[in-house]
Measured scan of single mutants.
Amino acid sequence: MALNTPQITPTKKITVRAIGEELPRGDYQRCPQCDMLFSLPEINSHQSAYCPRCQAKIRDGRDWSLTRLAAMAFTMLLLMPFAWGEPLLHIWLLGIRIDANVMQGIWQMTKQGDAITGSMVFFCVIGAPLILVTSIAYLWFGNRLGMNLRPVLLMLERLKEWVMLDIYLVGIGVASIKVQDYAHIQAGVGLFSFVALVILTTVTLSHLNVEELWERFYPQRPATRRDEKLRVCLGCHFTGYPDQRGRCPRCHIPLRLRRRHSLQKCWAALLASIVLLLPANLLPISIIYLNGGRQEDTILSGIMSLASSNIAVAGIVFIASILVPFTKVIVMFTLLLSIHFKCQQGLRTRILLLRMVTWIGRWSMLDLFVISLTMSLINRDQILAFTMGPAAFYFGAAVILTILAVEWLDSRLLWDAHESGNARFDD
């Protein structure tokens, strides 16, 4: 018995066209964080690309023209004298008006014999932002004059995390709450300039795509075929072959399989920071003279006294001054041990922890910024005066060393310790 099946006739004509040209192939790229070699397709503007294995951002879609970056830099340069030299806060102490600005706080630190601690604050609040705007201006002028731009481009990517104007702005709020127990506070004209400078700096850093600047100024022929001998440069993120001198053909720094002496430098910085954190938390970090009496505060006791007036601000200072430094030390110690013992479990967790400490590390400088600003506000000789204690130097040095330890660690070593050939990683 035959089955009668109805015929289905399409209502619209289906047209099949042959592909007349070869589909576009992607360029081969190595991930600078996990060293995976993959094919990167062509990316349009405002599109980002991520590593298929570790999800690290390979290409950032946010990109401004150099002219727009230069305009932002010149605007920031105009704001800087007002943000640093004009009063941020006014207080009335014992019937006398006192003005506080950024430069005055750094000068008070240096004047009291601790120039190293003052230079830490100076670099993060004044030096690094000033280098940022002058570097962008150098790129703008240098591109037109045919100057060598490689050193500036190499420095810009590392400079971003040292620009800490946003953290200093939080420190202004913390210092205001600490001082309000002794005097009446009012915002100064410099505060508005400083807030504007923070906003412009944040926007500029978020749109400063150094890798795209490398592509514009020093374009290189990408690798179009897969080759395990391809290496990625950690300076400019170019994937290719080393030249005859073993250097990256684009930025001219040595092109090595792994960062040289990464573990040794990381261990040295980490152990030194552990040693410095002990006096930083045991010795007094601030000293207040009130009517001839002397009151010393460690980091913890200062947080407890701050909690009596504002528990939320005390929580912020606790996280930045105690929780973050010790968390960074514990995480980095764990990561280094996992590399030495070739741990194969929990790779995803370790990668996330490394990215976390990379982002939060700079916030530990908050305590030094609060001390710097408070020193310029309260300084009335023996009637009422505020000065920093010996722990300030140890704390600042420990924070900087932990930042350097994270920067010096080559994250690809975590993958080397893991089993080879993993296309995915999980716990």
Rank of each mutant, 00 (worst) to 15 (best):
S39Q: 05
P325Y: 00
W140M: 14
L37W: 05
I199A: 13
I185M: 15
I8C: 08
S48Y: 12
V102K: 01
V170I: 06
S45E: 07
L278V: 10
I311H: 14
F38V: 09
G421Y: 15
M72K: 03
A392I: 03
R216L: 11
E161R: 04
L145R: 04
T298Y: 07
A269T: 08
V170H: 11
C251D: 02
D367S: 00
T134P: 05
M332S: 06
I199H: 04
S273W: 02
L200S: 10
V357P: 02
G389H: 01
L66I: 12
K160L: 09
I167F: 03
Y28M: 10
N310W: 02
R30Q: 08
P52A: 05
W84C: 08
V370R: 00
L197Y: 13
I285K: 00
K265C: 05
Q382P: 14
C124G: 11
R150K: 15
F395V: 01
D114E: 14
A423P: 06
E22T: 08
R247I: 11
G146D: 05
D99A: 08
L290V: 09
A280T: 11
N209T: 09
P41F: 05
C248K: 00
F369H: 05
V329A: 12
D381I: 01
I371Q: 00
C34P: 00
S262T: 14
L88M: 04
H46N: 07
L93S: 01
L263Y: 11
F122L: 14
C34K: 00
M109I: 10
N291L: 15
G302A: 07
W267V: 12
L130E: 08
R225I: 15
N281W: 05
I116W: 02
L306H: 00
A391W: 01
I14R: 10
V275F: 08
S193M: 02
L278Q: 14
I285Q: 01
Q344S: 11
A223S: 13
P390I: 06
L255N: 07
M80T: 09
G346N: 13
G171R: 00
H252G: 03
V16C: 08
T224A: 13
L277W: 02
Y138L: 06
L277M: 03
V399C: 13
R350C: 11
A183L: 02
P81C: 03
V210M: 14
M375G: 08
F82Y: 09
Q244A: 11
Y168M: 13
K160A: 11
P41T: 06
T110K: 15
T5R: 12
V232H: 14
L276Q: 11
I339W: 10
A423N: 15
Y289M: 03
F238M: 10
L300W: 15
G20H: 06
R25M: 07
L323F: 06
T387N: 04
V195R: 00
S309K: 01
F82V: 04
R260Y: 08
V203E: 05
M388H: 10
A385K: 05
F141C: 06
C233Y: 01
S309F: 13
V16Q: 08
I116D: 15
F82I: 06
V102C: 05
L354W: 05
R221S: 13
H207T: 09
P219K: 14
G171K: 00
T387F: 06
I91G: 01
V329I: 10
T15E: 08
G240D: 07
L23W: 06
R59A: 09
L283G: 05
D99W: 09
K265F: 02
V210C: 14
A137D: 03
C251G: 00
V357L: 10
W64P: 10
Q180D: 13
R150S: 04
T75D: 13
L323A: 12
W92A: 02
S286P: 01
D166K: 15
V406K: 12
H90K: 09
I14G: 08
M155W: 02
R62V: 09
P52H: 02
L139M: 05
L336P: 05
P279F: 08
I288G: 01
L352T: 13
A83C: 03
G235C: 07
H207I: 15
R348M: 11
I303M: 09
Q55W: 06
N148K: 04
R59Y: 06
S376L: 11
T67V: 12
Y50H: 15
C233H: 01
G142C: 12
Q295W: 14
M76D: 02
G315M: 14
A71M: 07
V189D: 07
E228M: 14
P222F: 14
A397R: 00
T9H: 06
L278N: 10
M388V: 09
D367A: 00
I131N: 04
M109A: 11
R245W: 10
D114K: 04
S193R: 02
Y289W: 13
A385F: 01
C266G: 11
L234W: 14
L205K: 14
P254Q: 13
F141K: 01
S372V: 06
L153Q: 12
I288Y: 01
D297K: 04
T15D: 05
A100W: 00
N379R: 12
Y289G: 01
T110Y: 01
L149K: 15
L37E: 09
D426G: 09
Y241K: 13
M120S: 03
I403Y: 01
D427Y: 13
L323D: 01
L323P: 01
